[in-house]
Design a protein around this nucleic acid. Structure first.
Lengths: 169, 169
DNA sequence: CGCTTCTTTCAGAATTTTGTGAACACTCAG
DNA sequence: CTGAGTGTTCACAAAATTCTGAAAGAAGCG
């Protein structure tokens, strides 16, 4: 038997399985706060062999309008998760997943921590640094500062590891 | 001058400053995906000296209905960010921020990584582990596995540091 | 028990978000 | 220039979300 349980050892893509993955993974991303269409486009790209698709292909596979593709693609481009490239000799754009998308997305996380830390310190100052609330907020700000540092180091370690793995190829 | 710029060195809370902080911080949390009312309640608790408030106080300071408080509080309780406690001798509940809320919230992040990794591995298997898409997804899953490990260690280091700081008191 | 005080639930109004269709804009090929 | 092939914008319809008031539900207190 070569059913879906034991994976795909054939050459051709099981489009139904792809669609299932795309929808499930997109749902996770949506739950985590990403816009629905952006999440679906992103997932579709992730599951594409080329790592890139045209707007038409996206509209087709996801059953959405060109307008929806446009919106999703704008979001993903602005947030630096995908790039747009033009196929030479044609008018068609391809939208391509950047390498290490997830790793760079996590870097952006870092910026969130910076902002939160800043606001907490301002808050602590406004409330009075020696009040109970002020103290609590300072401690929380310290945690965020710590996380920034650690996240940075973690990403460096990941880069090293990736570099090592690539050297083995 | 003792304006708001240079912090509050007086005893009494500058309620206007508190309100500003609450709204700003809540806005950040909302942008990061938290429900609006939950974010406001959470921020208000964070800025409260006692680290806890009654439903009535929350409704009052945030200008929202008891129903809204109820909803927000349910969400925060379910996600384990606050606890409910009854004031002895009264019928009033107090909602209290857990210690190290943020640190434990980050622990929950970890569960997200677990789920995402799992889905990616399933996806890679469904698409065929040796296809380009399958390979990409496996690599991404590896990143998430790595992040889980690192996040865990980071939180341990934070606990240690906290323990050390508390011992100094 | 019943009253009083709080909390929760629920239906609905208001708002916001989302996705579409259609018009518009851009770009290259001839 | 013109026209075909693509991408984007915008107004609107549909759907989801959010918050409220009102009513119902607990839980202590006399």
């Amino acid at each position: 038997m070569s059913s879906r349980q034991d994976g795909n050892r054939d050459e051709k893509r099981d489009e139904a399985a792809v669609a299932r993955f795309v929808e499930r993974f997109a749902a996770e991303l949506t739950a985590a706060g990403m816009q629905r269409m952006a999440a679906r486009v992103f997932s579709a790209l992730l599951a594409s062999d080329a790592g890139s698709m045209t707007a038409a292909e996206l509209a087709e596979t996801l059953s959405i309008s060109p307008a929806a593709v446009s919106g999703a693609v704008r979001y993903l481009t602005q947030t630096g998760m995908i790039g747009r490239e033009r196929e030479p000799g044609t008018r068609r754009d391809r939208y391509r997943l950047y390498d290490d998308v997830m790793a760079t997305a996590l870097t952006r996380r870092d910026q969130l921590l910076v902002r939160w830390e800043k606001q907490l310190r301002e808050g602590a100052d406004a409330l009075g640094p020696h009040t109970p609330a002020g103290t609590r907020m300072t401690e929380t700000a310290d945690l965020f500062a710590f996380m920034q540092q650690e996240l940075e180091e973690t990403l460096l370690r990941w880069q090293e590891r990736r570099a090592g793995a690539r050297a083995d190829d």
